Simulated scan of single mutants.
Amino acid sequence: MNTTATTDIDVLRVFCAGDGRQGNALGVVRDPRYYPDEASRQALAKELGFSETVFVDDPERGIVDIYTPGTRLPFAGYPLVGAAWLLDLEVIVPPAGEVWVRGDGEFTWIEARAEWAPPRTLRQYGSAAEVDALEVPEPGEWIYAWAWQEEAAGRVRARGFPGRGDGIDEDEATGAAALLLTAELGRALNITQGRGSQLLTAPGPDGIVELGGRVRLERTFML
Protein backbone atom coordinates (compact mmCIF):
# COMPACT_ATOMS: atom_id res chain seq x y z
CA MET A 1 0.00 0.00 0.00
CA ASN A 2 1.26 3.49 -0.84
CA THR A 3 0.90 5.31 2.46
CA THR A 4 1.76 8.71 0.92
CA ALA A 5 -1.23 8.58 -1.44
CA THR A 6 -4.76 9.71 -0.62
CA THR A 7 -7.97 7.85 -1.35
CA ASP A 8 -11.59 9.01 -1.17
CA ILE A 9 -13.82 6.79 0.94
CA ASP A 10 -17.58 7.03 0.42
CA VAL A 11 -19.62 6.07 3.49
CA LEU A 12 -23.11 4.83 2.66
CA ARG A 13 -25.99 3.90 4.92
CA VAL A 14 -27.65 0.77 3.54
CA PHE A 15 -31.09 -0.54 4.55
CA CYS A 16 -32.18 2.77 6.05
CA ALA A 17 -35.52 3.13 7.77
CA GLY A 18 -38.33 5.07 6.10
CA ASP A 19 -37.17 8.33 7.70
CA GLY A 20 -33.64 7.87 6.29
CA ARG A 21 -32.08 7.03 9.62
CA GLN A 22 -30.32 3.86 10.78
CA GLY A 23 -28.93 1.54 8.10
CA ASN A 24 -25.57 -0.20 8.18
CA ALA A 25 -22.46 1.87 7.46
CA LEU A 26 -20.58 0.73 4.36
CA GLY A 27 -17.20 1.94 3.18
CA VAL A 28 -16.71 2.13 -0.61
CA VAL A 29 -13.31 2.65 -2.23
CA ARG A 30 -14.10 3.68 -5.80
CA ASP A 31 -10.45 4.12 -6.80
CA PRO A 32 -8.50 1.25 -5.19
CA ARG A 33 -5.27 1.69 -7.18
CA TYR A 34 -3.28 2.11 -3.94
CA TYR A 35 -4.78 -1.09 -2.55
CA PRO A 36 -3.98 -3.56 -5.33
CA ASP A 37 -3.83 -6.82 -3.40
CA GLU A 38 -5.69 -8.75 -0.74
CA ALA A 39 -3.27 -7.88 2.06
CA SER A 40 -3.51 -4.11 1.56
CA ARG A 41 -7.29 -4.26 1.20
CA GLN A 42 -7.67 -6.35 4.32
CA ALA A 43 -5.53 -3.89 6.25
CA LEU A 44 -7.64 -0.95 5.10
CA ALA A 45 -10.91 -2.74 5.92
CA LYS A 46 -9.59 -3.39 9.41
CA GLU A 47 -8.49 0.24 9.78
CA LEU A 48 -11.87 1.59 8.65
CA GLY A 49 -13.75 -0.75 10.96
CA PHE A 50 -17.02 -0.99 9.02
CA SER A 51 -18.88 -4.30 8.96
CA GLU A 52 -17.86 -4.44 5.30
CA THR A 53 -15.77 -2.37 2.89
CA VAL A 54 -16.14 -2.59 -0.90
CA PHE A 55 -13.36 -1.98 -3.41
CA VAL A 56 -14.61 -1.10 -6.90
CA ASP A 57 -12.21 -2.67 -9.38
CA ASP A 58 -14.21 -1.77 -12.50
CA PRO A 59 -16.97 0.85 -12.12
CA GLU A 60 -18.30 0.27 -15.66
CA ARG A 61 -18.62 -3.51 -15.42
CA GLY A 62 -19.48 -3.46 -11.71
CA ILE A 63 -16.62 -5.68 -10.55
CA VAL A 64 -16.23 -5.39 -6.78
CA ASP A 65 -14.23 -6.94 -3.95
CA ILE A 66 -15.68 -7.20 -0.41
CA TYR A 67 -13.93 -7.33 2.96
CA THR A 68 -14.93 -7.45 6.62
CA PRO A 69 -12.33 -6.25 9.15
CA GLY A 70 -11.06 -9.82 9.27
CA THR A 71 -11.74 -11.62 6.00
CA ARG A 72 -12.52 -11.41 2.28
CA LEU A 73 -16.05 -12.37 1.21
CA PRO A 74 -17.21 -13.79 -2.14
CA PHE A 75 -20.70 -12.39 -1.48
CA ALA A 76 -22.42 -10.09 1.00
CA GLY A 77 -25.87 -8.56 0.79
CA TYR A 78 -25.70 -5.03 2.11
CA PRO A 79 -22.39 -4.13 0.41
CA LEU A 80 -23.83 -5.15 -2.96
CA VAL A 81 -27.06 -3.21 -2.46
CA GLY A 82 -25.01 -0.16 -1.48
CA ALA A 83 -22.48 -0.46 -4.29
CA ALA A 84 -25.24 -1.08 -6.85
CA TRP A 85 -26.99 2.11 -5.75
CA LEU A 86 -23.77 4.13 -5.85
CA LEU A 87 -22.60 2.85 -9.25
CA ASP A 88 -26.11 2.88 -10.81
CA LEU A 89 -25.60 -0.33 -12.80
CA GLU A 90 -27.87 -3.14 -13.92
CA VAL A 91 -25.34 -5.81 -12.94
CA ILE A 92 -22.74 -5.92 -10.19
CA VAL A 93 -20.10 -8.65 -10.01
CA PRO A 94 -18.62 -9.88 -6.72
CA PRO A 95 -16.46 -13.03 -6.75
CA ALA A 96 -19.58 -15.21 -6.28
CA GLY A 97 -20.97 -14.26 -9.71
CA GLU A 98 -23.22 -11.80 -11.53
CA VAL A 99 -25.87 -10.06 -9.41
CA TRP A 100 -28.71 -8.34 -11.23
CA VAL A 101 -29.93 -5.01 -9.93
CA ARG A 102 -33.11 -2.99 -10.23
CA GLY A 103 -34.39 0.20 -8.67
CA ASP A 104 -37.94 1.35 -8.03
CA GLY A 105 -37.24 4.90 -6.92
CA GLU A 106 -37.18 4.31 -3.17
CA PHE A 107 -35.51 0.92 -2.96
CA THR A 108 -32.52 -0.71 -4.64
CA TRP A 109 -32.93 -4.46 -5.24
CA ILE A 110 -30.45 -7.21 -6.02
CA GLU A 111 -31.10 -10.80 -7.09
CA ALA A 112 -28.96 -13.45 -5.43
CA ARG A 113 -28.88 -17.09 -4.41
CA ALA A 114 -29.07 -18.04 -0.77
CA GLU A 115 -26.26 -20.56 -1.24
CA TRP A 116 -23.91 -17.65 -1.97
CA ALA A 117 -24.40 -16.36 1.57
CA PRO A 118 -21.84 -17.27 4.23
CA PRO A 119 -23.07 -19.66 6.94
CA ARG A 120 -25.32 -18.13 9.59
CA THR A 121 -27.08 -19.75 12.54
CA LEU A 122 -30.74 -18.74 12.23
CA ARG A 123 -32.15 -18.76 15.75
CA GLN A 124 -35.86 -18.13 16.21
CA TYR A 125 -37.27 -16.61 19.41
CA GLY A 126 -40.82 -16.47 20.69
CA SER A 127 -41.29 -12.72 20.51
CA ALA A 128 -39.71 -9.50 19.30
CA ALA A 129 -39.24 -8.50 22.95
CA GLU A 130 -37.02 -11.53 23.51
CA VAL A 131 -34.86 -10.53 20.55
CA ASP A 132 -34.67 -6.95 21.84
CA ALA A 133 -33.50 -8.19 25.25
CA LEU A 134 -30.60 -10.31 23.98
CA GLU A 135 -27.08 -9.60 25.17
CA VAL A 136 -24.16 -9.79 22.74
CA PRO A 137 -22.92 -13.39 22.92
CA GLU A 138 -19.30 -14.43 23.30
CA PRO A 139 -17.28 -14.74 20.06
CA GLY A 140 -18.16 -17.90 18.20
CA GLU A 141 -20.77 -18.74 15.58
CA TRP A 142 -22.53 -16.07 13.48
CA ILE A 143 -26.04 -15.83 15.00
CA TYR A 144 -29.06 -14.27 13.33
CA ALA A 145 -31.66 -13.95 16.08
CA TRP A 146 -35.20 -13.39 14.84
CA ALA A 147 -38.86 -13.49 15.82
CA TRP A 148 -42.16 -12.77 14.15
CA GLN A 149 -43.57 -9.31 14.77
CA GLU A 150 -46.61 -10.03 12.61
CA GLU A 151 -46.40 -13.41 10.92
CA ALA A 152 -49.39 -12.95 8.63
CA ALA A 153 -47.79 -9.85 7.14
CA GLY A 154 -44.29 -11.34 7.00
CA ARG A 155 -42.91 -8.78 9.47
CA VAL A 156 -39.79 -9.93 11.32
CA ARG A 157 -37.69 -8.50 14.15
CA ALA A 158 -34.02 -9.51 13.91
CA ARG A 159 -30.54 -8.86 15.29
CA GLY A 160 -27.23 -10.09 13.92
CA PHE A 161 -24.25 -11.14 16.05
CA PRO A 162 -21.16 -11.88 13.92
CA GLY A 163 -19.24 -13.53 16.76
CA ARG A 164 -15.97 -12.67 15.03
CA GLY A 165 -14.14 -10.90 17.83
CA ASP A 166 -12.96 -8.18 15.42
CA GLY A 167 -14.79 -5.28 17.05
CA ILE A 168 -18.14 -5.79 15.27
CA ASP A 169 -20.27 -7.12 18.13
CA GLU A 170 -23.60 -6.55 16.38
CA ASP A 171 -24.30 -6.11 12.68
CA GLU A 172 -26.90 -3.41 12.10
CA ALA A 173 -28.32 -4.89 8.88
CA THR A 174 -27.35 -8.20 7.31
CA GLY A 175 -28.48 -8.95 3.77
CA ALA A 176 -26.93 -12.41 3.57
CA ALA A 177 -28.78 -13.57 6.68
CA ALA A 178 -32.02 -12.10 5.31
CA LEU A 179 -31.53 -14.17 2.14
CA LEU A 180 -31.02 -17.35 4.19
CA LEU A 181 -34.10 -16.69 6.31
CA THR A 182 -36.20 -15.96 3.23
CA ALA A 183 -35.06 -19.17 1.57
CA GLU A 184 -35.83 -21.17 4.72
CA LEU A 185 -39.30 -19.68 5.20
CA GLY A 186 -40.13 -19.50 1.49
CA ARG A 187 -41.94 -16.19 1.68
CA ALA A 188 -41.47 -12.43 1.32
CA LEU A 189 -40.25 -10.69 4.46
CA ASN A 190 -40.16 -7.18 5.87
CA ILE A 191 -37.32 -7.27 8.41
CA THR A 192 -36.52 -4.70 11.06
CA GLN A 193 -32.97 -5.30 12.25
CA GLY A 194 -30.69 -3.66 14.77
CA ARG A 195 -31.75 -0.17 15.87
CA GLY A 196 -34.39 0.11 13.15
CA SER A 197 -32.91 -0.75 9.75
CA GLN A 198 -35.34 -2.15 7.16
CA LEU A 199 -34.65 -5.03 4.77
CA LEU A 200 -37.17 -6.33 2.24
CA THR A 201 -36.98 -9.74 0.58
CA ALA A 202 -38.98 -11.80 -1.89
CA PRO A 203 -38.36 -15.36 -3.12
CA GLY A 204 -38.20 -15.72 -6.89
CA PRO A 205 -37.95 -18.55 -9.43
CA ASP A 206 -35.07 -21.03 -9.66
CA GLY A 207 -33.75 -20.37 -6.15
CA ILE A 208 -33.33 -16.63 -6.63
CA VAL A 209 -34.13 -14.26 -3.75
CA GLU A 210 -34.63 -10.52 -4.17
CA LEU A 211 -33.16 -8.30 -1.48
CA GLY A 212 -34.01 -4.61 -1.30
CA GLY A 213 -33.52 -1.52 0.80
CA ARG A 214 -32.95 2.20 0.92
CA VAL A 215 -29.47 3.66 0.54
CA ARG A 216 -28.10 7.13 1.24
CA LEU A 217 -24.68 8.73 1.02
CA GLU A 218 -23.68 9.78 4.52
CA ARG A 219 -20.29 11.37 3.83
CA THR A 220 -17.08 11.20 1.81
CA PHE A 221 -13.68 11.57 3.40
CA MET A 222 -10.06 11.36 2.31
CA LEU A 223 -7.65 8.85 3.79
Rank of each mutant, 00 (worst) to 15 (best):
L12R: 11
T7R: 01
A147G: 08
G18S: 03
M1K: 06
Y35N: 03
G103L: 00
N2M: 01
N2W: 05
A158D: 08
E151T: 03
P36R: 05
T53A: 04
A84F: 07
E218C: 08
W142P: 14
R61L: 04
R157K: 12
G140P: 05
L12G: 12
P119Q: 11
N24D: 04
S127H: 15
L223M: 01
L134D: 11
G165Q: 10
R216Y: 01
G103R: 11
V11Y: 14
I92L: 06
E52D: 04
Q124N: 05
V93W: 10
G49R: 06
G167W: 09
T201P: 15
E141N: 10
S51P: 15
L223F: 01
V56D: 09
G163W: 13
A129L: 08
A173S: 15
D104F: 01
T3R: 08
T68S: 12
G167S: 09
Y125T: 08
Y67R: 03
G82W: 04
L179W: 08
T108G: 00
A176S: 15
A25V: 02
P74E: 08
E115P: 10
L223W: 04
S127W: 14
E111Y: 10
L180E: 06
D8T: 04
T7C: 08
D37M: 05
F161R: 06
R214H: 03
G196A: 06
A177E: 00
E138C: 04
L122M: 11
T71S: 15
G186I: 03
D169S: 08
W100G: 11
F75E: 00
T220F: 08
Y67F: 15
I63G: 07
A129Y: 09
E52P: 07
G62S: 03
E141R: 14
A178Y: 11
D19W: 14
D8V: 05
A83G: 03
R155V: 09
E150W: 13
E135L: 10
A39F: 12
F107G: 00
L134W: 15
R155P: 05
T7E: 01
F55W: 11
G70Y: 14
V29K: 10
A145K: 09
L122C: 13
A76K: 00
A176V: 12
N24K: 02
L179P: 14
S127M: 13
E130D: 15
A133F: 13
D169T: 06
G154M: 00
A17F: 05
A112T: 08
M222L: 06
P69R: 02
E47C: 04
E47A: 06
R157D: 12
R155H: 13
G23F: 06
G204L: 15
G196H: 13
G196D: 09
V29C: 12
A76N: 00
Q198S: 13
A117K: 08
V81R: 10
